[in-house]
């Protein structure tokens, strides 16, 4: 009998020690478990996204032009997209709301997407249970890092051949045809979209002054400066001379860091054609 009492007492003490051991480890274990289940939620969300969301939002949420906008995009996570239509909550809340309740109207920024986002949450008449909505939310939110990192990588890195801010720079022979492309083109591929701000119609101010009859005016604007020289200065150091009626810093200030000499020469050659 005594041996039973002794072993029993030891066993009770050992049990208490194990419980204490478990208790001590709980603060470390619980967040780990939560992360583990978050991982499972993302997995489930990936499968749901694949079957239900990719038809409109594209593989890996890259978007399908005119059908569904990209979700794997920096402007969603940076809050820019939310600001456009006045969403006051967090990105995650917005994603959850858009998935569960759909989007009855597109924002102005997505005017070229005529299809409306349908409701997916059961409480709004859709097919997904709450936990499924949450799975898809977790999956979409998991793009945050990737999308923001991709956007950061896409922001212009200093061009090693950039023309710089020396207005006495020697420029090669310009090609007016290429200059026109750079002037009017959109997007990051070597185009500068000058036409977005400078109209070619007489006396029409979009943001900056109209460029109608520019080549003739340019020579006269600043005394002792040729039209070409004036263009160089105006593009790479826009604040040095301002057309009366227009404020400083209205024009983008970093073209000197973006353009190389050939591009600057091309644009100037084009501008010289605007008689």
């Amino acid at each position: 009998m005594t041996i039973r009492v002794v072993i029993g007492t030891v066993l009770i003490a050992a049990t208490m020690m194990i419980v204490t051991f478990v208790m001590i480890n709980e603060p470390a274990r619980m967040p780990e478990f939560e992360a583990g289940f978050k991982g499972r939620s993302i997995e489930a969300g990936a499968a749901l996204f694949q079957s239900s969301c990719t038809p409109c939002h594209g593989i890996q949420g890259k978007g399908i032009e005119g059908v569904g906008p990209s979700l794997n995009a920096a402007d969603l996570f940076s809050g820019k997209r939310l600001k456009e239509f006045g969403w006051a909550g967090t990105v995650k809340d917005y994603v959850r709301s858009a998935i569960a309740g759909g989007r009855p109207r597109a924002s102005a920024a997505f005017a070229n997407y005529p299809q409306r986002m349908p409701t997916w949450g059961q409480e709004f008449g859709g097919p997904f249970r709450n936990d499924q909505v949450e799975n898809v939310v977790d999956f979409v939110m998991n793009w945050e890092k990737e999308a923001l990192a991709a956007a950061a990588a896409a922001t212009p890195t200093p061009n090693p051949n950039a023309v710089g801010t020396d207005i006495n720079v020697q420029l090669p022979q310009g090609d007016a045809a290429n200059g026109e492309k750079l002037f009017t083109g959109k997007g990051p591929n070597g185009a500068y979209a000058c036409s977005a701000c400078h109209s070619l119609e007489p006396n029409k101010t979009v943001v900056g002054p109209s460029f109608a009859g520019l080549a003739g005016n340019a020579a006269k604007r600043k005394e002792g400066t040729s039209a070409e020289k004036y263009f160089v200065e105006s593009i790479i150091k826009p604040n040095d001379f301002l057309v009366p009626g227009f404020n400083a810093n209205l024009m983008q200030q970093n073209f000197g860091q973006l353009m190389d000499k050939k591009e600057l020469a091309d644009i100037i050659a084009y501008l010289m054609t605007l008689k």
Partner: peptide
């Protein structure tokens, strides 16, 4: 009392230990 009681309490201690050990380690 005391033999059967000790025996039963011993079994309680042993089984509890086995269960607690089983789910922990």
């Amino acid at each position: 009392m005391p033999d059967i009681l000790t025996d039963e309490l011993f079994l309680v201690a042993l089984t509890t230990f086995v269960l607690v050990f089983g789910v922990t380690f």
